[in-house]
């Protein structure tokens, strides 16, 4: 069943369909929020909030676009609003580079010395992404890490395609510069 059909059932109050929707889109939304805020616990909270909002907003849902785009839009708004509301500027300004969050890389570094380089690279890249401004990070995460198209990224970020292109180029330039240091 495609996303829209699933969402149509959620709109009618079908809780099983909502669970199916969550199992399909929970991971991408969690990954997206984790890349934006950089903190596992916060990303989990935000993911729950986003899907609760989806459940509450479902009766008014209209099949106008892709469900994933709609979900990412809600997630983006929620990330932005929550960070501002809680005064957690740090989460807007950049995710912390914490060993707790770099789980895969750290586990790798404990297993074998050859993974140390990867762990260091992970920290370096995470730091570089963290150093991006919120606007650049949002575009970079959607376009380059989530692999969305230019148009989808523009719709979610609420900016023109040309701006997406220029922000993506600026983000990559900033990352390159950061990683060379």
């Amino acid at each position: 069943m495609d996303g829209r059909a699933l969402m149509a059932r959620v709109r009618d109050g079908d809780r099983q369909a909502f669970e199916a929707l969550y199992s399909r889109y929970g991971s991408p939304v969690m990954r997206f929020l984790f890349r934006l805020c950089g903190e596992r616990a916060l990303a989990e909270d935000l993911t729950q909030d986003v899907f609760l909002k989806v459940w509450r907003a479902a009766p008014g849902w209209k099949p106008l676009g892709r469900v994933s785009t709609w979900l990412f839009q809600i997630a983006k708004h929620h990330w932005w609003n929550e960070a501002a509301k809680r005064g957690r500027r740090a989460h807007l300004e950049g995710p912390p580079v914490s060993p707790d969050d770099a789980t895969a890389a750290d586990a790798a570094s404990e297993r074998a010395p050859e993974h140390l380089a990867r762990a260091e690279a992970a920290q370096a890249v995470a730091a570089a992404v963290a150093a991006l401004s919120p606007k650049l990070r949002l575009v970079f995460v959607l376009l380059r890490l989530e692999g969305l198209s230019l148009v989808e990224t523009a719709e979610i970020a609420g900016i023109p395609v040309g701006t997406v292109k220029s922000r993506a180029a600026a983000a990559e330039a900033a990352l390159r510069k950061h990683l060379r240091q």
């Binding site: 969690m30 890349r35 770099a102 750290d106 992970a122 995470a126 570089a128 380059r144 990559e172 990683l179």
Partner: peptide, 20 residues
């Protein structure tokens, strides 16, 4: 350049549906 991106730590799984 993108080799670095691959090095990003994996994102953790979403919370269990039961919490929602």
């Amino acid at each position: 350049h993108l080799l670095h991106y691959d090095a990003l730590p994996d994102a953790p799984p979403p919370p269990p549906f039961e919490r929602i």
